[in-house]
């Protein structure tokens, strides 16, 4: 895991920033980037970065469930898709995770160097009898269930944006 130069602050994660923690709860606090890191395209890198994020969730006054279920599972899914489907586990490629915090929401941008797959095309319901005994096919479903919004952007890079309202 390596910080990017674009990293603006890490107040929520390290507590070492000049920005007081109280500012996180100030209703006029503008959105700020709390974490901006790159990880190699290796699924073993998912757990440490997810742990880093979830360890500090409670300082943001999120619910216990948001910290122990919604964020870790949805973020794991997005990172996993970026590493496996996006970067095809190519060790020369990286996945970028950018977390932005405002008084209204947490926004996670997961950026890979590949094309990913079209999430809009994922319309099956893995809870139905047709799919429930299949090993795969629950990742996008879980992101949609556990986040308030899941978006996908294509440009120079492929971005999956997860938004969790506070």
């Amino acid at each position: 895991m390596r910080p990017r130069q674009a990293r603006l602050a890490d107040v929520a994660w390290t507590g070492t920033s000049a920005v007081p923690d109280d500012s996180l709860f100030d209703p006029v606090t503008p959105p700020y980037v709390a974490l901006d890191v790159e990880i190699p395209s290796d699924v073993r890198q998912i757990e440490p970065i997810v742990n880093l994020v979830t360890e500090h969730c409670r300082s943001l006054h999120l619910t216990r469930r948001q910290c122990s279920l919604n964020i870790p599972v949805a973020l794991s899914e997005a990172l996993s898709n970026a590493i496996i489907s996006g970067n095809k586990e190519d060790p020369r490629k990286h996945v970028r995770l950018r977390a932005t915090i405002s008084d209204r929401a947490l926004v996670f941008d997961v950026v890979d160097e590949g094309g990913g797959f079209d999430m809009a095309s994922v319309v099956h319901d893995p809870t139905t009898s047709q799919y429930i005994e299949q090993e795969d096919g629950r990742g996008v479903f879980l992101m949609r269930q556990l986040m308030d919004r899941v978006e996908q952007f294509r440009g120079p890079h492929h971005v999956v944006r997860l938004t969790l309202n506070r």
């Binding site: 629950r138 990742g139 879980l142």
Partner: peptide, 17 residues
């Protein structure tokens, strides 16, 4: 156990079968 992702759930389904 902490959390389980879709891959973990998938393995449980696969093993059960």
């Amino acid at each position: 156990t902490g959390y389980i992702d879709s891959s973990g759930l998938g393995v449980l389904v696969s093993l059960s079968k």
